[in-house]
Design a protein around this nucleic acid. Structure first.
Lengths: 142, 142
DNA sequence: TCCAATTAGTTACTTAGGTAACTAATTGTA
DNA sequence: TACAATTAGTTACCTAAGTAACTAATTGGA
């Protein structure tokens, strides 16, 4: 198991986790990319679209699409900022009402996914990956 | 940094790694999904398309597409098996000739990506993730 | 033996992400 | 101040992976 093994494992994990979250959210008509946005808005409050991109480390075009779908579903509002280029994204009342149910489903799924990983190991892996990601992103901008 | 953090980190890593490999392979007109197939064929030898799917943990339709593109580029041949449903995928001579150059580029990129991660930590994370992935896949089939 | 069930692969359509090229608004500078 | 450069967001088109529904070949059971 050399470098290929690690990369392949990460890709597989990423795909599998997305798939399981999608299954969890299916009853609510949501997909993982939409959930990520809703979660950030609920946790951090309303923010410009560009801030959502930065926070989720996603380029602008996919964010535009996700935002547009959420708007169509009535879960967010796009409020023009005083800088007229900016769209500030707000959760709607409809989203705030439904949110606890979504969150409950996702959190209990997450717990189920992680219950087989010992707490200590989990933290260790998390820190190591986070650190590695940071270094990689740092390398890119130099 | 709770469960969301870990999942988000894994997704970001996966996307970033794919992106960097794609950049590495761009001069050769290859993409990461194609490289994965070429690597397996070179390492394990010719095999049916279904075996490639299983090995790379990818569903049949994306594999069909990748195979078709590789065939169009002249890097693989699809040889009908004695069971006429099966297509056995072989590397062509053209692919074998170019392979060392591809491999050199990818391996040196991989080394560069991992050079900032201490050897010991790397092994530890690799084993932990591999173990976790195995448990998750096990849970699915029960 | 013959027909139902399974298997290998394909086709059509979906989510999710990326880059390049664009528009409109704003900022900075000669 | 006027115009160039930058920024926010969109549009068009790309890779990559997924599901559902299909065809063709093979296997197994009544």
């Amino acid at each position: 198991m050399e470098t290929h093994g690690l990369f392949h494992t990460i890709h597989q994990l990423s795909r599998l986790l997305t798939k399981l979250v999608n299954e969890t959210l299916q009853p609510f008509g949501l997909y993982s990319a939409q959930w990520a946005v809703l979660f950030v808005l609920k946790t951090k409050g309303a923010m410009p679209q560009s801030a959502l991109c930065e926070y989720l480390a996603v380029e602008a075009p996919p964010m535009t699409r996700t935002i547009q779908r959420l708007a169509k579903q009535g879960y967010i509002r796009q409020v023009p900022g005083e800088d007229k280029r900016i769209k500030v994204i707000h959760l709607t009342e409809k989203a705030r009402e439904a949110y606890p149910e979504w969150e409950q489903a996702v959190l209990s799924m997450n717990d189920r996914l992680l219950e087989r990983v010992p707490e200590e190991q989990r933290t260790l892996v998390q820190l190591a990956l986070y650190d590695w990601l940071g270094k990689l992103k740092g390398d890119l901008h130099e």
